[in-house]
Simulated assay, not measured.
Amino acid sequence: MSETNTRPGAAECPDCLLQESWFPGPQPHYDHVHIVETVPAPQDIDGHVIIHGYSVGMSGPELPQLWIFFEYLEPAIACGRAARMSADIKGYGVYRAAREQAIDWDAERKVVTLHLVGPSLDRTVGEADILRRWLEGVVPGSAYFEDRPPAFM
């Protein structure tokens, strides 16, 4: 059993146990990583937030599986492409996702779950257009991606 599945709340999770072979080893910043048919509905209520977006999964010979969540497809595709250009990354995929953060009141801690929906969205026809939109949405002096080009461009 991986370290992730020994954290409070995850040890009894049948989805984590079922999918452990897909995601071996600990997931450092997610308590759960689940492959699902549909993502849960977005919400933002006291102690429970679900955000829709996209997640990049990557790994390499010396690096464990790592998941990074983005609200927009454009930076997710750019991240996956850039990561794969590193000698440290041997595989990646970009998936529709939802990031869920909830308070586990019994364990007195936050629990973060990543919900993934296939198929992979990377390396498809039109990816160059997605990367072009990402570049157009890069704002000088900011670390944020804008989903529309800034007025000064």
Rank of each mutant, 00 (worst) to 15 (best):
V33R: 05
W67I: 07
G57F: 01
V49A: 05
D104N: 14
I51C: 08
L121V: 05
Y92P: 00
G60T: 06
D106E: 15
A41Q: 14
T4H: 04
D46H: 11
P42G: 09
S142L: 03
Y144Q: 10
Y30M: 09
E74W: 06
E127P: 06
E146S: 10
V49E: 04
I51N: 12
D122S: 11
T38N: 15
F152P: 00
A87H: 06
G137Y: 07
E20S: 14
D147M: 06
M85A: 14
P8Q: 07
Q27C: 10
A10L: 06
P119Y: 09
S142N: 01
V125A: 13
P24N: 09
Q43S: 11
Y92I: 10
D44P: 00
V33N: 02
P140G: 02
Y92R: 07
F145E: 06
D88R: 14
A11E: 15
I77S: 04
Y72E: 14
P14W: 10
L116P: 00
D104Q: 04
M58E: 05
P61W: 09
A41F: 06
R99S: 13
W105Y: 15
V49T: 15
F23S: 01
E71I: 02
G93W: 03
L131K: 03
C16G: 02
W67K: 03
V36R: 02
P8K: 14
V56K: 00
E37G: 09
P14N: 05
R109G: 07
R84A: 11
P140F: 05
Y144W: 07
S55R: 02
L17V: 06
W67F: 15
S55P: 03
R133F: 00
M153G: 13
A151L: 08
Y72R: 10
G53D: 08
A83I: 01
S142E: 13
P8F: 10
P28A: 10
P149E: 06
W105V: 14
